[in-house]
Design a protein around this nucleic acid. Structure first.
Lengths: 235, 235
DNA sequence: CCTGACACTATGGTCAGACCACATGGCTCG
DNA sequence: CGAGCCATGTGGTCTGACCATAGTGTCAGG
């Protein structure tokens, strides 16, 4: 072995190049990557290896691929960490490497932190309006449970976004996504959904009121009780 | 649109099957997946599509692939979320979707939470001994900075593991990994590493002492100061 | 009987070329 | 001028082959 290792794997070269372009700013959100055939020729590797690299970036939520032509086609830099981390976490939960109990505990930690900081941060009133609008949509008593939980997720994300830390909101969202299927199954399995939804609505409005009143301690306490109560009901 | 979608993509079938096997327990840590050629025949798709699925699982840290034969060959379930999430986060940081400032802030949140809980949890003494052993190794004044920061990372993980929440330790480790290169570059760029390392050692011993003394509030405060001081020095 | 060298085998990694499904944009024809 | 159609370029899939690797069995020679 004369040289240490020129490039362990063929597709690693593409990955390193793209990461470098991202760091240097040569590749920004919304930009399109060259076509797979062009990249293959550019790096002197086969298209299959290029696809390996693209697949890796897609799984990590860095790019999105679309067929056909036009603005929605090709491989585009999107940087969507939430769903990517959520999918990965979901599989690790499935492999029993990460217990659901720890996921919930981590979520409580992040949401309490977020709301405590949100109450003290300075945010535009329309951001809180977004949360209020979601709650109003959830007040519809005829809302099916999947739609309710979807709005529920958006509400929590919108609230935590007020803290101004994108990493925390992203991870919080990922944690929720990773166990969403378990929650949906549990919700649809047991009855009393109507009663549970009513209680959730009450808790949600209380949390929003606490944040709007800038009472961080109260908001943190309410959201902790909210999450723990819900998971005690379902899981 | 008569039927909704039988199977959007060819490789999705493999992914869903493997996730199902993980959830049902039919596939556990350390198990070997069938060979790529066998999977291709089993699902009636090409080997290229099977490889797409395997690649996705590998990027998510669910499996590890090795060539040749023997115990280290084939595709094996490993479930290593830390490095997978770390790589993904690193790229999102590179794309400027996630600011380094938020990463550090999230790390402070998780480490303070971990140490506060570690002080109150009941753990085996040998777990704390592991942390102590790492600190003793770091006391070597001739230790090069990369080795120091590697031990540093292990120390923080070992301490946070005492809290008993694998999700929080995993995410903490991923956050650290995601900005490791930035830190290493900053450390090697500026001088005074010797002085910085000395201060880090002092802080580390203080944190460990606080945890061993079961003083959660002090440990949390010290680790916050520790992290914020270090990043103020480097970034 | 032991021992070492060698071929065999099965694994993932790579390559090449082809075809398919899709979506757009421009072209043609009414 | 407008509606329909097709050329074009994208990723997605398939096929079949070959390569690099690392155990394992085999066989010749001691």
């Amino acid at each position: 072995m004369p040289a240490e290792r020129a490039s362990e794997r063929a597709h690693d070269a593409v990955l390193r190049h793209i990461e470098g372009s991202l760091r240097s700013g040569g590749l920004k959100l919304g930009d399109r990557l060259p076509g797979e055939r062009a990249l293959a020729e550019q790096f002197g590797i086969s298209r299959a290896s290029v696809r390996d690299a693209i697949r890796a970036l897609e799984v990590m939520g860095i790019v999105r691929s679309g067929t056909g032509s036009g603005p929605n086609s090709g491989t585009i830099v999107v940087s969507d960490p939430s769903s990517a981390l959520g999918s990965a976490l979901r599989l690790h939960v499935a492999s029993q490497r990460l217990p659901v109990k720890d996921i919930v505990e981590a979520r409580v930690m992040m949401e309490t932190w977020s709301l405590a900081h949100a109450a003290g941060a300075d945010w535009e009133p329309n951001q809180a309006l977004e949360a209020r609008r979601l709650l109003e949509a959830m007040d519809d008593p005829d809302l099916p449970s999947p739609a309710f939980t979807a709005l529920d997720a958006q509400f929590h994300v919108a609230l935590s976004a007020l803290a101004g830390n994108s990493v925390v909101s992203t991870m919080m969202d990922s944690l929720r996504e990773s166990i969403r299927e378990y929650v949906d199954e549990a919700v649809s399995a047991r009855g009393r959904w109507h009663d549970i939804a009513a209680e959730l609505r009450r808790q949600h409005w209380g949390i929003l009121a606490a944040v709007e009143a800038r009472d961080g301690d109260l908001a943190a306490r309410l959201v902790r009780d909210h999450i723990e109560w819900f998971y005690a009901q379902t899981l």
